[in-house]
């Protein structure tokens, strides 16, 4: 154990030289390459971060576009629903109109059927009424009734105004001078004379008289002059009443 000053000094110098060597040939290049690698890694990280930012921006853009598409889709769906609703309403209105028409037709048909049925019932009622009246009048009719009807006819013939008389004369176009007077019961001479005079007052051309008896008339008279016929008896009235019921 001894200290050699030459070795002591040379070792100090040697170590200082070694520090310089290692600093210039080891530490500096190795640290530089590590720094370059770290810088490269940092650049790659920055690039990755930039890519990530870009990707995030693209993702947000796509999200917005997707949201917009969804809104447009919803809007189109709403428009389609509105169109469908309008079309449905139109179809419903058209069907309602057709249904109203059909209902109106059905009501008209039903009303017509009801009126027909009512008319048939009225006819039946009129016929039944006529039959009942005929049976009633057939039982109640007699010479007195005929006499009153004849008197009434004479009175009406005498009461005719000139216009009615001229119309009556126009009915006798053939200007027949023969008149057939049928009655249910035999008329008295007085009545025949007055009836003939009243009729002749209306139709002066009549000169021949044919007095007949027809029990089917029940009561009253039927005057036939050519083609013209005047019924003033219960049978014709009942028949006319029945025909009135049939024709409404």
């Amino acid at each position: 154990m001894e200290l050699n000053w030459s070795t002591f000094v040379l070792e100090i110098i040697n170590f200082l030289v070694l520090i310089w060597i290692l600093k210039h040939f080891l530490y500096r290049p190795v640290l530089a390459i590590i720094a370059r690698r770290q810088e490269s890694v940092a650049q790659q990280q920055q690039q990755a971060e930039a890519l990530r930012t870009e990707a995030t921006a693209m993702q947000e853009e796509y999200q917005q576009r997707l949201s917009q598409w969804q809104q447009e889709q919803q809007q189109a769906r709403n428009e389609l629903q509105q169109s469908l609703a309008a079309e449905r309403q139109q179809q419903r209105d058209r069907l309602q109109q057709e249904l109203d028409v059909m209902r109106h037709g059905a009501e008209v048909a039903e009303q017509r059927q009801r009126q027909d049925r009512l008319r048939q019932q009225e006819q039946v009622a009129m016929q039944q009424g006529a039959q009942f009246a005929a049976q009633l009048l057939r039982l109640g009719a007699g010479p007195e009734t005929e006499k009153r009807l004849t008197e009434l006819l004479i009175h009406q013939l005498l009461e005719l105004d000139p216009e009615q008389r001229s119309r009556l004369q126009r009915h006798n176009g053939e200007r027949s001078n023969a008149a057939t007077i049928a009655s249910a019961w035999s008329l008295g001479d007085d009545q025949r004379e007055r009836l003939g005079a009243a009729l002749q007052q209306c139709l002066p051309e009549i000169t021949e008289w044919d007095w007949q008896r027809d029990p089917e008339l029940l009561a009253g008279v039927r005057i036939t002059v050519g083609a013209w016929e005047l019924g003033f008896n219960l049978a014709d009235e009942l028949s006319g009443f029945a025909e009135l019921g049939e024709h409404g």
Binding site: S6, T7, L10, I21
Partner: peptide, 21 residues
């Protein structure tokens, strides 16, 4: 100045390290 084997060995080590670096 005495050059001892210690110094020579140190020089050899320095040369080796310098060459390797």
């Amino acid at each position: 100045v005495a050059i001892t084997n210690t110094v020579v060995t140190t020089w050899a080590i320095m040369a080796l390290l310098a060459l390797a670096c």
